[in-house]
Amino acid sequence: MSDPVSLALIRAIAAVTEEGSFAGAARLLGLSHTAISQQIRGFETDKGLRLFERMQGRLSPTPLCRELSEIGERLLEVETEAVRLLARRDPSGQLRMRVGLGNSMPGIAIIGLVIANHPKVSITVESGSHQAIVSSVLRREVDVAVLPDIPADPRFRRLPILQQNVVAIVSETHPLAAATEVQLRDLAQQALIFRSRGSSTQKVIDRAFARAGLAPRPRLIADTRDAVYEAVSLGIGVGFMWRLGTHRADAVRRLQVPNIGSGSEEIVFALAEERNPLTDMFFLAAESYTRRLQEQILP
């Protein structure tokens, strides 16, 4: 009896077509080389046809194989959509939204509005650098994200929500704590706390110091905003953050830096093709948050 054309077989054919070898397909699918080769060779023998020809060290698909691979791609798209659908539900079946944030604010304020209007929605938050969060959106690991300076890109649905700038932060006991602003040249003489590469905050700081012809060496490099905040509050040095990056006001003072450069727009964004009730819900809450800001009513 002929074996049926299973989804696993179609997936294997598509993987070999993409990788050009059984070994590459095995790595892609997390299976053994033997499992892939036996599956495809067995199908060829059973059906009396050839799916691949070896050419210059690679397995090249036959015209029939290319057609099967195209079918496989469509099936895998359906499978991926099913996985995404399940990811939007928690174990109890309730809607679950995945949100990526570079800074706690203003994203947490928007999440607060979502929860207030839709108390049955479960929300998980992924925090990280600018680069990490953009990658999470592109890989569909989060549904929607909030980051500064997301450029116009046809891949993204975007909503600018507020304009903000980077400020210096110092502890309450720091000599600069009584000031309201500080110049870059004076900051260069301080013990500084920088963010790691990929941080949008650090990109602004690096550009500002470079324009001023300054190259200070930091005392500490931290990979998260919270780590910078805690280090500053402990008096380790002077750090930097977006002015509205948090609503916390304990243990630190914000100082304007007049020559740090222009501000940045905080952007709510999601993949343009990801139109679903969850992302729509978040965008509506972001619009409400922006209206409140314009009315000078911060949530």
Results as ranks from 00 to 15, higher is better:
Ile71Trp: 09
Leu284Ile: 06
Met1Gly: 15
Val146Phe: 06
Ile236Arg: 12
Val146Met: 03
Leu234Gly: 08
Ala272Val: 01
Leu244Glu: 14
Arg88Val: 07
Phe283Ile: 01
Arg248Gln: 12
Ile297Ser: 13
Ala15Cys: 08
Leu101Val: 12
Ala191Trp: 01
Ile161Glu: 04
Glu81Val: 06
Ser136Met: 15
Ala179Arg: 14
Met55Phe: 05
Gly213Pro: 07
Leu214Trp: 09
Ser233Arg: 13
Glu126Phe: 10
Ala191Val: 05
Asp3Gln: 13
Thr246Glu: 02
Ala82Cys: 08
Val142Ala: 02
Arg292Lys: 14
Ala270Cys: 08
Asn276His: 07
Val16Thr: 03
Arg84Lys: 15
Gln164Ile: 10
Gly198Ile: 01
Pro148Lys: 04
Glu274Pro: 00
Trp242Glu: 05
Val238His: 00
Lys47Tyr: 08
Gln163Ser: 12
Gly261His: 02
Phe52Tyr: 12
Gly112Thr: 04
Arg217Pro: 02
Ala109Lys: 00
Ala208Val: 07
Gln94Tyr: 11
Gln56Glu: 08
Ile111Ser: 01
Gln131Trp: 09
Pro258Leu: 07
Ser2Ala: 13
Leu31Ser: 07
Ile110Thr: 15
Val167Met: 09
Ser60Ile: 12
Leu234Ile: 01
Leu68Arg: 05
Gly24Tyr: 00
Gln183Pro: 03
Gly261Lys: 04
Leu278Tyr: 00
Val268Glu: 09
Ala210Ile: 00
Ala132Phe: 10
Arg253Leu: 11
Pro154Tyr: 14
Ala270Arg: 04
Ser60Lys: 11
Glu126Leu: 10
Leu29Ala: 10
His118Asn: 15
Ile115Thr: 14
Ala116Ser: 11
Phe269Trp: 10
Phe22His: 03
Arg254Val: 04
Pro4Tyr: 11
Ser136Pro: 11
Val99Glu: 00
Leu29Val: 15
Thr224Ser: 07
Leu9Trp: 00
Tyr229Glu: 12
Val252Trp: 08
Asp3Met: 13
Arg74Lys: 14
Ile221Ala: 03
Ala15Pro: 05
Pro91Asp: 00
Leu75Ile: 14
Val5Phe: 08
Met97His: 05
Leu220Met: 03
Glu266Tyr: 12
Glu274Phe: 00
Leu86Val: 13
Ala251Glu: 08
Arg291Lys: 13
Pro106Gly: 13
Met241Cys: 12
Gln256Pro: 07
Val167Arg: 06
Ala132Cys: 05
Val170Asn: 03
Glu181Asp: 10
Ser32His: 04
Arg185Cys: 10
Pro277Tyr: 01
Leu234Ser: 07
Gly213His: 02
Val268Phe: 09
Arg217Met: 12
Ala188Leu: 00
Arg139Trp: 09
Ile110Lys: 07
Ala285Gln: 12
Phe43Pro: 04
Gly112Met: 09
Leu31Tyr: 11
Gln94Asp: 09
Ile10Val: 15
Arg50Phe: 11
Val16Ser: 00
Leu76Ala: 13
Gln296Asp: 13
Gln190Asp: 05
Pro119Val: 05
Arg41Tyr: 01
Ser69Leu: 03
Arg66Val: 14
Ala8Met: 06
Val268Pro: 10
Val257Pro: 04
Gly24Val: 01
Val232Lys: 03
Ser196Pro: 00
Arg225Leu: 13
Glu44Asn: 03
Gly237Phe: 02
Glu141Gln: 14
Cys65Ile: 04
Ser135Thr: 15
Arg248Ser: 13
Pro154Ala: 13
